[in-house]
Amino acid sequence: MTQFLSLLLNGISLGALYALIALGFVIIFKSSEVVSFTHGSLLLLGAYSIARLSDAIGFLPAVVVGILITALAAFVIERLIINRLRGAAVISLAIVTIGVDIIILTELIRRIGSDILNVPHPWGGESFRIGSVGLSQNRLIAFIVAALLIALFFVAFKYSNWGIAMRASAEDGETAALMGIRQGRVSALAWVVAGVLAAVAALFLVGSPTPGVSPTAYAVALRAFPAAILGGLDSTGGALVGGLLIGIAEAMAAGYQDQLLFLGRGFSAVVPFIVMIAVLMFRPSGLFGTKELTRV
């Protein structure tokens, strides 16, 4: 039972981070119809800049600058490439982001090499205990920050001008444009927000219990893809549910690895994808995604 509770806690905190990344996917998709495959490299970019800068300028300034760098990168991608392709097919938009991803990722991997960069979190690697149930402090803080950010995001999404503009243009782009909503600006801001969310997630993902920044952080962002998809690519609430579901499933599979050994070692990394396939079998547009209707 203790193990179960502890795994559940771990899963929820991991899921909160997945939810942050998945929210980024979703708002980018809603505002610019792009499925962003650049997210993995943006995440790695955030982690890399934080790790490299914190030696020089201290931890907190490094976090701020790292987040800014990631947001700027996302902004530049949107302005230089995505914005020029407005109205192109969803497939070619996705492919173009793969192209960008190859470039950023190659450069980052070249810089990181075979090192594992360390991010000096001031909260260190200790864990936090209630009775016999433990959770690493890093993950606890991650959960709190993620919950705050997500709450802030939902409030902004509901009440701020940007949120309203974005929901309007996601609902019906043409009408929103006629109402005077600048879609270019909405989509640029969405990319910036997604960049910030990815960088924050990166900050915690490279802390304990993971060893540090290495190219494997890239694979983590790929596991947030299932989170976004199974919630429904155009549903922000779905990203939240999807993230938690994936996080818990992965943590459970990792925790009960010994019982699952017949499925092979390292099975937990595959679990998010299996969950996604299982959900898509029954609900092809995710749990909360809008079903596509065709009118003849």
Binding site: V35, V90, L233, I277, P284
Partner: peptide, 8 residues
């Protein structure tokens, strides 16, 4: 749908 397939 197209893009869901890509990710799936």
């Amino acid at each position: 749908r197209g893009i869901y397939l890509g990710v799936a």
